[in-house]
Design a protein around this nucleic acid. Sequence first.
DNA 1: TACTGATGTGTACAAGTGTTCACTAATGTG
DNA 2: CACATTAGTGAACACTTGTACACATCAGTA
Lengths: 208, 208
Amino acid sequence: MADRKRPKPGETREKLMNAALTLVGKGRHFASLGIREVTRQAGVVPTSFYRHFRNMDDLGLQLVDELGLVLRRMMREARANVSQADKLIDESVGIFITHAQNNRAFFMFMAQGLAGESRAVQEGIRSEMRYFASELANDLRRMKLAEHLSDADLDLTCDLVVRSVAFSLTDILGISPEDTYQEEQVRKRTARFLQLIFVGAANWNSHP
Amino acid sequence: MADRKRPKPGETREKLMNAALTLVGKGRHFASLGIREVTRQAGVVPTSFYRHFRNMDDLGLQLVDELGLVLRRMMREARANVSQADKLIDESVGIFITHAQNNRAFFMFMAQGLAGESRAVQEGIRSEMRYFASELANDLRRMKLAEHLSDADLDLTCDLVVRSVAFSLTDILGISPEDTYQEEQVRKRTARFLQLIFVGAANWNSHP
DNA sequence: TACTGATGTGTACAAGTGTTCACTAATGTG
DNA sequence: CACATTAGTGAACACTTGTACACATCAGTA
């Protein structure tokens, strides 16, 4: 009689992960979250936590995996919406910022994790960024937009692009989601960062 | 008789700040530190904390101020050691990485704070970065290395440079201080990032 | 149908938390 | 010298924390 309903398998697991994300979205840092706090937010008894995660680090790792899915979805959308090469940067940045606003908590978690206290989470996020950069390099190759660059230099360029965009995260997440003016500023500035990088890449000599 | 010695004024304050830094240097995240934990590490009774700080956020803010001093000292050294323009990037990156290694805890705190939970700390670090970027812009102007760029575009470039270097922080701090090979890799890669940016700036048209 | 494993719940406990209070010794100022 | 201020102490408070244990309920399988 203590059992209210019979939840679908994995439901509580999701509830817990969402609870952690919610707290992060409210401004809390993931490293400062406790098991009890998360279970409370999830509306679940503390003991349930251990049915799904060994500790908070474990939960963090599983969040990184989900973050990967979000990023891939975003990348797919970006690829589908690429119209012409000259609008490529602006549109991609736009898609990124939109996703960042729509998945605020996820991206906050990502920004936090880069300097977080779990080495594993750190490495996971880093790995997602590498994957992102390599996909970007593939796209640029396919679109024949970087034919004069060696593989290593193209890789370098894409890495820098991804880092710059990632850093813009801290700009976006720092402003309120309703402040469309500031959002526009960040959007423009990020786009100009990328233009600057691409001008650099275009004039780069891979065999000096 | 309970008073062991009569400590110099501000001594305990320093002990507390160093204790927090020490814990951060050991891999802990600042947001997860507690007052008792810090005072314990400092070898001080918990109540003493309140003589100097209102809460942990307050301590964080004061750490940001000290961080500013570290950064300024670093900048001064960089300016003194600038030999020729063509070695400028490599030498500056070298100085930065050396400082990052020598003040590991400080820079970890900085990396954490960028996505930390205290808005004030976040803004403080951001402000330090802006200052850094503007000083860099001044230097480049003075050395007549960016005469074709508008003020706004030079500002953009320097901002991107500072962001890229700051991001490299997470690379450096992620590797062990003894791993000179990996450190050399980060050093080289960071330098190439900056070269790429400067090539972009050199070919940038401020009045298109 | 009976058994088994996964997932949920409630209770309990020792340890750790932030903060308050009253007290004391040293320091600097009139 | 007397006195207010500052910076330290220890004891106590009401909570919160992570984790362990025993138990209940479901789903699937033999």
